[in-house]
Every structure is written in C-alpha cells, then in structure tokens.
Nucleic acid binder design. Structure first.
Lengths: 140, 140
DNA sequence: CCAAATCCCGATAAAATTACTCGGCTTTTC
DNA sequence: GAAAAGCCGAGTAATTTTATCGGGATTTGG
C-alpha cells in the first residue's frame, strides 16, 4: 500500500517547481542536486509529467522546467495519477472501472476497496501544490 | 498504491471465515477451492494471521481455521496490518513513526502522506468483517 | 495402532515490478 | 561552434511479491 519512489519523488520535485514558480524554468540538474536524486531518474519522472501537460519545458542552455499552471491549480492527485496510474487499492476498482471478477466473495470485498479508493482520491484531490508549500512544517 | 495479492486474498479468506463463523473450523483446502487459490499460498497467509491472534487453528483430521473473535470485532485494517505491515503510503510515515528524512522539501511533502495515511486507516478501521458480509453486493 | 486429514514451517524458486543507467540525439544560448 | 540543457528509447540491476516444495507434527476414525 505504498506510493512508488517515482510518485514520491515526483511530488517532491513538483513542490520545488511550485516554490520557484515565479523564478522561471529550473534545470533538472539543480533539482537533482537539491533533492539528492539522480539526474536520470528525474528525467524519467519529468517526461510523463510534461506529456500530461502538468509542466512545461524550455530546451537549450538556460532552459529547464516550470509548472504549466500556478500551484493553486495543480492537485497532488493529478501528479500521482500521471506517475502511478489510477488511484486504486486493487486492480478491479480502478477509478471509473465497473468490472467484476468471478470469485465467490468478490462482490463482498469489493465495497471495501471502493470506499478506500474514494477516500484516497478525496484527500489527494483536496491538496494542491500551493497547500503543500504553504503548510508550515511543524510536526517533527 | 496497491494492496498486495496477499492482503487482498487475506481479506477475502477472512470473509469466508466470517461467513462460516458458526460452522466450526474450515480447512484450507476448502477455502482454496472456494476462492480458486492455491493451498500453499493460503498457508502463507494464514500463518501470520494465526500468529497475530486473529484466527485460531485446529490441527489434525477435521481440523481447520476459524476466526478468533466474532466478525464484529475484527477490522479490515487489522487483517491488512498483519499481512502488509503498517498502513502508510510512504515509508517515513509509518503509523506511529516520528522519523524525518534529510531532504530539503521533505517536511513539505510529509504532511500529504500523513493526511493520506490517517484517512486510509480511518476507512479500514471502520469496516469490520461483519460489515463486509452484511453489505448487499449491489453495485455491479 | 495405523492411515488419512490437516495444520506447521523454513527454505527457496519463479515472476513481476520498480528503480536506475546508458547512449545518442536535438535545441538554444553565448 | 561549444556548452548547457532537454528528449527519448532501450536495457540492466535490484527489490519485492508470488508461489512452490518437502518434510514434520497432531488429531480423528476405524
């Protein structure tokens, strides 16, 4: 029941883009240095985020990445769905998926996963990048 | 962000034990047949559940497994914690874990995972096995 | 007392997923 | 035109998950 490193680091990287939203594009090299991640792993994260339209890129020297929209308009759920696929605790209850598997207790347990999925989506869609950068990091 | 097959099938198997709670112990062979799972994989699921005290076993011919407590008193969260470890979307926010990692945006993103973890626990701890077997399987 | 049913359990093999790297290309600035 | 950056497919390494095996130990029923 874990988010992958890709998802976790993707959110982390997007947080940096949110912090620097007014400062123009930031290079992967800089983000990699700030977060202690490899340049190449970050590339793998940014590629799908750009294709999904969450970030924009500027090529060439002085280039880099920036959020495509202001931090208030990007939800954590958006980022995770791009990097990890639909939010769903089990395959058969993918968001907007009506399939049913053939096993006997299947329909009994299904409700659990649907409720869990809905609450997970709810939390992740109510937190924007703006919330993330504005929340004081109190709880040690 | 998925539950493993072990967790999913564990909940499924516990549901069967809940359905047959009054009927005495059920053998793994029977559960395996009813759910289309391998006997040996189920063994791997039941061993930790028994060690955790969620089920009891009776050895020998006519033996099998039964819930240690009535279905009303066993939460889905209990089962998942045994089979998958603490409910936590990322390592560093394991239930009751105060650690902090050293990276820069760490404390900014941490709050996300804490909120997610809390809501996940909440859902899973408000559903008992009794709820699972009593909920009509309407939503096709 | 024996045979069959059943749980007990460590070890390990197989498969799947995830994490990470490589190499080479294209675009832009200075 | 050289350096700084992004673009991108392919491939390898590491980890986790799934599944199997083999042999014990315990109980029931004949």
């Amino acid at each position: 029941m874990k988010v992958t490193a890709k998802g976790e680091n993707g959110v982390r990287a997007m947080t940096i883009l949110a912090l620097e939203f007014r400062a123009g594009p930031i290079s992967l090299r800089e983000i990699a240095a700030r977060e202690g991640l490899s340049y190449q792993f970050l590339e793998q994260i940014f590629l799908p985020l750009r294709r999904a339209g969450l970030i924009t890129s500027v090529r060439g020297a002085k280039g880099g990445y920036a959020l495509a929209r202001p931090p208030e308009e990007i939800k954590v759920g958006d980022v995770l769905r791009v990097l990890e696929g639909p939010i769903a605790p089990v395959e058969c209850v993918g968001e907007g998926n009506g399939e049913v598997c053939g096993r006997i207790a299947a329909c009994l347990t299904r409700g659990i996963w649907e409720r869990l999925r809905d609450r997970m989506s709810e939390v992740l869609d109510e937190i924007t990048l703006a919330d993330v950068i504005n929340t004081p990091a109190d709880s040690t």
